[in-house]
């Protein structure tokens, strides 16, 4: 792998790809820590799957207006709308039916992904539609990343870090003691909306690299791997960012070494390997780590 890595670093395109995936991995580690500590880990899964109808709808709209159906900004906007619709659907189902949160997420995830599947099957039949280009978004293909993707990743990472740092006290209080946070008048609803929005931004920015089906893994696994080593939320955030970047780079390099391999699965497997190593090496029962009492 060292030789492959050296070869990759010599190539400007490969440098862009690696920089973009590392940035995304770090950014996902930061936001994933928030999701895990706030116990909203699987909301990212619902949002990730719900991007599919948004992406396909945006592609179809662009095609019908004479575009190519694959403009990056159009697809990103569609994906973000789809993910927000998925989160809104989860909230609506919970309010309207009082079903448990996991049932609401499973309903939104399955139905919206199904809708996306149906729409994708239509788009793929349109003459000159090149629906196949959208299919790589499902499992990810980091080789398609270009310079503008690096800029998007950098912008999302900056926003994630800046907002997390700016609201760290409120977010920490919400994650560890929601009743206290509410009693001192912190806006729990708006803080949750902020966490959801950051998760959506990271999922959308990462969909070309790791794909939308597995985007939740890049959010959750680095945070989980950082967990046993840290006593504070700040330390956990920093370590999760490092582990996320390492996993994303290792997975990208591994998938580049295999012909036709989608990037997403290999990034997730690399992150899972990091988690396994962390669990083997980590000290047991360090007392009150983040969320230990929750």
């Amino acid at each position: 792998m060292t030789a492959a890595l050296a070869g990759l670093l010599g190539d400007p395109h490969a440098r862009t790809v690696l920089a973009a995936t590392a940035t995304l991995g770090a950014s996902c580690g930061v936001v994933g820590t928030l999701l895990v500590l706030r116990r909203r880990a699987l909301l990212g899964d619902a949002a990730g799957h719900a991007t599919l109808p948004g992406i396909v709808g945006a592609g179809a709209l662009s095609l019908s207006l004479g575009g190519t159906g694959r403009e990056p900004w159009v697809l990103v906007a569609g994906a973000a709308l789809g993910a927000l619709a998925g989160i809104a659907a989860v909230h609506w189902i919970r309010r309207a039916t009082r079903l448990p949160a996991d049932a609401a997420m499973a309903i939104a995830l399955g139905s919206l992904f199904g809708l996306g599947t149906a729409m994708l099957s239509a788009l793929q039949q349109v003459e000159g539609g090149h629906g196949a280009g959208l299919e790589s978004l499902v499992t990810g293909d980091a080789a398609t990343l270009v310079r503008s993707d690096l800029h998007v990743a950098a912008a999302v990472a900056t926003a994630s870090v800046a907002l997390t740092a700016a609201f760290r006290h409120d977010l920490r209080a919400l994650a560890f003691d929601e009743d206290f946070s509410r009693s001192v008048g912190r806006p729990a609803g708006r803080l949750d909306a902020l966490v959801s929005a950051l998760a959506v931004a990271n999922i959308v920015a990462g969909m070309r690299a790791v794909g939308l089906v597995l985007s939740v893994a890049l959010l959750v696994i680095p945070a989980a791997a950082a967990r046993p080593w840290c006593r504070t939320m700040g330390a956990m955030t920093a370590l999760a960012a490092v582990l996320g970047a390492a996993g994303a780079v290792a997975g990208t390099v591994a998938s580049a070494a295999i012909e036709d391999a989608p990037t997403g699965p290999f990034v997730v497997l690399a992150c899972a390997a990091i988690l396994a190593a962390s669990l083997v090496a980590a000290p047991r029962a360090r007392g009150a780590g983040p969320g230990a009492t929750a």
């Binding site: 699987l42 990212g44 996991d102 597995l214 893994a217 959750v220 696994i221 046993p228 997730v268 988690l275």
Partner: peptide
């Protein structure tokens, strides 16, 4: 990891699905 059941499930199944 002392994480909630959902997060543990999410890690296990995304890793296996990958």
């Amino acid at each position: 990891l002392r994480v909630e059941r959902d997060a543990a499930l999410g890690i296990a199944y995304t890793a296996l699905f990958a």
